[in-house]
């Protein structure tokens, strides 16, 4: 399978890919940032190690705030710290931040234009055994619906580090969606990460697969399966879900004529919605949104759940093949 060489990706099919989590990428990047900039402070709500801010906390105990299990207060304290010139990173599980503290994020952080960064480390089905209550499947939707916040969804450990560094550079609210589970790391330090852009990881002419987060890798595997059947699928990584990269979306609508979107999130309000919103304003083509079809998750291993809900490479390939039939002649 031929990848876009400008993206400097590792072969997604290689069995030797290192595995790591996006939350680990967050923890490492936050530590690097802390060393460079004394304005960086970190907050958590009784989950320091789970969200990987313990690295920062150990190195910079003065700049670390253990808020207790108080997600709402954590968000407003972060806003106050930001108004006073600090750059707070506040973290919990996605179900509780931005789940529980959404209004505080909306008012104090977004409306108040606080230079605060909300990073959630347990999102999607890959949260696993803790079950439905802990599987944040609406967080992207919640954050995308508020004005004045940038929403970033990195696809692997390396990209998570870049997203965190980018978040620190932005002067204003940012949400970064990270995950718990170790996943193959297939992007590299050289892989571009440009705000406002969609990255083409593999070109194709029959169909476009737009993917975000944990399912970009599966989507590349799906493209490899499709290639064996003579179907040329483009795979595009959407990591910035704020304003969409309309020109790339329009270009691939014209080029391929049919879309599939893939995300570990409800199909309403996340990537699938974002792509539909954009493409219907430029060059409408049929879109099949893959994700959670508006139901709650359940307990199980992350991989079992992705399988159960159809979010794995062979099923993405199957859906893509079906989707070819919807193309206008």
């Amino acid at each position: 399978m031929e990848l876009n060489t400008q993206m400097h990706l590792l072969n997604p099919l290689s069995p030797d890919l290192k595995k790591d989590s996006t939350r680990e990428g967050y923890g490492k990047a936050l530590l690097e940032l802390g060393e460079k900039d004394s304005r960086i402070v970190a907050l958590t709500a009784d989950l320091a190690e789970s969200v990987r801010v313990h690295y920062f906390a150990e190195k910079f105990p003065q700049r670390f705030f253990q808020c207790g299990i108080c997600e709402q207060n954590m968000a407003v304290v972060a806003a106050g710290l930001a108004y006073a010139g600090k750059i707070p990173f506040l973290s919990s599980f996605g179900a509780f931040s931005p789940g529980r503290n959404w209004e505080q994020i909306r008012s104090a952080i977004c409306y108040g234009n606080a230079n605060a960064k909300i990073v959630s480390t347990h999102t999607g089905l890959t949260v696993g055994e803790d079950g439905a209550t802990h599987q944040a499947l609406e967080d992207v939707s919640l954050m995308r619906s508020i004005p004045n916040i940038r929403v970033l969804v990195p696809c692997d450990f390396e990209q998570a580090k870049k997203a965190i560094h980018a978040a620190a550079k932005i002067n204003g609210p940012v949400y970064v969606r990270a995950g718990r589970e170790k996943m193959p790391v297939f992007t590299t330090q050289e892989t571009p990460f440009e705000l406002g852009k969609i990255s083409l990881y593999k070109d194709g002419s029959d169909i476009s697969i737009f993917a975000s987060g944990a399912l970009v890798h599966e989507s590349l595997l799906a493209a490899a399966e499709l290639e064996k059947e003579g179907i040329s699928a483009a795979v595009l990584n959407v990591y910035d879900l704020t304003e969409m990269d309309n020109s790339t979306i329009e270009k691939y609508a014209k080029k391929t004529g049919a879309f599939v979107t893939v995300e570990d999130h409800q199909i309403k309000g996340g990537l699938g919605s974002a792509i539909c919103e954009s493409v219907c304003e430029t060059h409408p083509v049929p879109v099949h949104r893959m994700g959670m079809r508006m139901e709650f998750g359940q307990s199980g291993k992350g991989s079992e759940l992705l399988k159960h809900y159809g979010l794995y490479s062979s099923n993405i390939a199957k859906v893509a093949k079906e989707q070819l039939k919807t193309k206008k002649r």
Binding site: D130, T133, H134, S299, E304
Partner: peptide
């Protein structure tokens, strides 16, 4: 906590009618 079990990682009214509240959060 296993896939398919009504004994969810956190108790759920969806799987057991005698559970009076789903919790976890």
């Amino acid at each position: 906590r296993k896939f398919g079990s009504p004994l969810q990682g956190h108790p759920s009214r969806k799987y057991f009618p005698f559970i009076d509240n789903s919790s976890g959060p």
